[in-house]
Amino acid sequence: MDRRDFLGLLAAAGAAGSLGVTPALAASPPTARNVVLVHGLFADGSCWSDVIAQLQGAGLNATAVQNPLTTLEESVAAVQRVLARQDGPTVLAGHSFAGMIVSEAGIDPKVTALVYVAARAPDAGEDYPALAKTYPTPPASAGIVFDGEYGRLTQEAFLRDFAGDVPEARAKVLHAVQEPFRKSLLAGKTTQAAWRSKPSFYAVSTEDRTIDPDLQRFMAKRMNATTIEVKASHVSLISQPDVIADLIRKAAGQA
């Protein structure tokens, strides 16, 4: 099936509507009490703060990983160290680039379900940049600047293309605390695709200007994920934390 046929099927199905779960892809994951959350580029662990508060209110033990954003291997290792501390079944959630880390580290036997929030979800060994090039180039890409080996997003691009639905004052604070990433991080390829063996959930950001929404839909469809569509920028975990927390609760087996 080519991309045009795939998008036609999505349109015919109505993509389950805004915030709607795709019935045919629903999963019934085991109950978990732990959640490990991983941030992507242009962010740090604090981007999960509002989601964490809601998960804690639901009785879940939530931990945000401070992703080093140096190499894929070192980022995966940081997640593995946090997973090792968990005392039982755990949901592993990743935003944006961290979807690659979730796919790699998610094979850990403690991980019972995976959650992807506007995230990369390549197959094992897949060239994600090549896959992304089959879709329109997102506007945020033009806003990446480098200081030697380290990249970051300009404030203009951050406010417009990364966090467009976040109040400006807060978006400026988020821009100020972003963790620069090393160029070598982008060269990494996953060796595992945990979504092939674990129940998976995906939140598509329909107004995303950082990862093309149709690319997100393709990846969610390919992994047979329980999928929701959120009318949000790339950072739905910040602009609509209640929606993302609810999806994670479902992945943890909470009604």
Rank of each mutant, 00 (worst) to 15 (best):
K172R: 15
G151Y: 03
E179I: 10
L83C: 01
N34C: 08
G88D: 06
E207D: 13
L41K: 10
T227M: 11
Y116R: 01
F158C: 05
S236W: 04
A130I: 00
F162L: 04
L7T: 10
R196M: 03
E229P: 10
A84I: 04
V79D: 03
W195G: 01
A225T: 01
S200M: 06
F97Q: 05
D212L: 02
F6H: 13
P213F: 02
D147N: 15
V79L: 07
N61G: 07
S184H: 09
A225G: 09
A251T: 05
P109R: 07
R170L: 15
K198C: 03
F6K: 08
D208L: 04
V76H: 11
R3L: 15
A15Q: 08
L37M: 02
A12V: 14
N67F: 00
F201R: 03
P122A: 04
R182T: 10
A225K: 04
D108P: 06
K172A: 00
Q80L: 05
V51D: 09
F6G: 00
M1T: 13
E156T: 00
T22Q: 13
P199C: 02
L247K: 12
T70K: 12
A58W: 04
I107V: 15
L174F: 13
D87G: 12
T154V: 00
D87M: 08
Y150F: 15
E126N: 12
D123M: 12
A24E: 15
G20I: 05
E104Q: 15
A232I: 00
V173K: 11
T63W: 10
L9N: 15
E73H: 00
S18K: 12
L41I: 07
R209Q: 12
G88N: 01
Q66L: 10
Q54H: 09
D165K: 02
